[in-house]
């Protein structure tokens, strides 16, 4: 780099009294006027009446429905739900009809995926196992939304001691690993003796709501400082009604995204608990139970384990993909205004 040039010092002229009469150039400046035909004058701030009115949700739906990610995940989810509701339409074989004669046999006519260690039809079991997973995922999400959403909204909106208490409670739950916590709860006598889908849902909801509460709280805090909330308050709307009518609807976007993604995660959690023998009782067909039972034949017949595991992965993946697609559509930064 070259040596810094020695700066030349200019003595500033004594500051002339500022006459702010505009500057007049000594040069000739052309006065150009564009022909009016080129830029026709439009009336100031006219309302565009031609476009179809669209609400925010309608706009989000428009951008969502053309996204490949959304189309694929939505089709998969519809398929999973159909399978869960009408398993009989998809599998003719009886999943509970198991004959040791067929144990570990390969695919045959009418039994495309072969048989388990116990001689049950794998295809039928995968189809009938969907119901438990979808039910657990759906009801856990609903429970988490109700509990976490309510607490989060109230804490975020009213603040103060309610917020402080909630923050500490969620901290405690965050410090407990889900699986460890679930093992303990599922070992409680009341739960151990009444193992069913509902005990799993309750356990997962206990550990799921704090996350939802935090997300809701954040969204509500952001929405409550908006001017339209102040406008409604000064119209005379009560504080609680403002929360219900303005703040909550405007906080929904991140909540919907998290709920969709969590639904997939709860399905995995159920399968994990069932795999560990803590979740659904063996009498209920579920992917987690089937994966656990297939463990022993993993080395000789990995296919027995692979099929329920594949069904589980595809289901969870499609919910997470849906969540991503919805997030893109609802992201306020990607939308104008």
């Amino acid at each position: 780099m070259s040596e810094n040039p020695t700066p030349e010092i200019i003595e500033p002229v004594a500051p002339a009294p500022k006459v702010r009469a505009g500057k007049i150039s000594s040069r000739h400046i052309e006065h150009y006027v564009a022909p009016l035909a080129e830029t026709p004058l439009q009336s100031v701030d006219k309302v565009d009446e031609t476009a179809e009115p669209l609400s925010m949700w309608a706009q989000a739906w428009r951008s969502l429905r053309i996204q490949p990610l959304f189309i694929i995940s939505a089709l998969l989810i519809i398929l999973v739900i159909l399978v869960a509701v009408f398993p009989g339409l998809f599998a003719k074989a009886d999943p509970t009809f198991c004959k040791l004669d067929f144990a570990r046999q390969g695919p045959s006519a009418g039994h495309p995926l072969g048989y388990t260690f116990q001689g049950c039809d794998i295809y039928a079991r995968v189809i009938y196992g969907a119901k438990a997973s979808v039910l657990v995922g759906l009801f856990t999400t609903i429970a988490v939304l109700i509990v976490g959403g309510t607490f989060g909204a109230l804490a975020g909106y009213y603040g103060g001691w309610l917020d402080a208490v909630l923050a500490r409670i969620t901290d405690i739950f965050f410090a407990l690993p889900l699986i460890l916590g679930a093992i303990i709860i599922m070992q409680l006598p009341a739960f151990r003796e009444n193992k069913s889908i509902w005990t799993v849902i309750i356990t997962l909801a206990i550990f799921g709501w704090p996350q939802m509460a935090r997300i809701t709280r954040g969204a509500v805090i952001e929405a409550k400082s908006a001017d339209y909330v102040m406008a409604s308050r000064s119209l005379g709307l009560s504080k609680f009604k403002t929360l219900v009518k303005h703040v909550v609807p405007n906080s929904l976007a991140p909540i919907i995204v998290i709920a969709t993604i969590s639904l997939g995660i709860y399905i995995v959690a159920e399968a994990t608990l069932s795999f560990l023998g803590l979740g659904l009782p063996p009498s209920i067909m579920s992917w987690g139970n089937d994966i656990a039972n297939a463990q022993i034949s993993l080395r000789n017949n990995p296919a027995i384990l692979m099929w329920p595991a594949l069904a589980l992965s595809v289901t969870v993946l499609s919910f997470i993909m849906l969540g991503d697609a919805v997030r893109d559509a609802l992201d306020p930064k990607s939308r104008k205004g």
């Binding site: 505009g22 500057k23 150039s25 006065h31 150009y32 564009a34 439009q42």
Partner: peptide, 23 residues
């Protein structure tokens, strides 16, 4: 007008008028 010798007025992406500020 106070700070410049010359003003360029733009409207809808086009220069519609330009010239000496005071004029």
């Amino acid at each position: 007008a106070e700070r410049a010798e010359k003003i360029v007025v733009m409207y809808k992406g086009q220069v519609v008028e330009s010239g000496p500020a005071l004029e």
